[in-house]
Design a protein around this nucleic acid. Sequence first.
DNA 1: CTTATGACTATGA
DNA 2: TTCATAGCCATAA
Length: 122
Amino acid sequence: MHGDYGSQIRGRGVVGVAEDGFFEQCYEVVRQVPAGCVTTYGQVAALLGNPRRARFVGFAMHASPGMAAGVPCHRVVFKDGSLARGFAFGGEGVQRRMLEEEGVAFLPDGRVDMDRHLWEVL
DNA sequence: CTTATGACTATGA
DNA sequence: TTCATAGCCATAA
């Protein structure tokens, strides 16, 4: 069980990246994000050595098995702190609620306080 | 080869 | 500051 994450998507858009383990790499990186912290698609992509593949990271998250597999995809947000809309976990605000539960502070604008919770690689 | 799609990012008005 | 557009990579048709 595992390894076949990317194989599920393959329609037209992306995938094949999984052949390089891109998906798994994304999951591995996201898995390292501690609770109460968030990271960005570009950050994950950069850690993989491909800052331009931020969009593919998004796909990986979309296809991510979820917390059940140890992939807190809800901790992955936009570079400006915004959250995915209409695609996340089956409801808007759900992701935000999960982050708040972990202690992530949100700005009045509805964005994550990146200055405070942006995950930094050590 | 060109077009279309995509949980992104950067830039310009 | 917010909104709109372009660029980005990769795959499929």
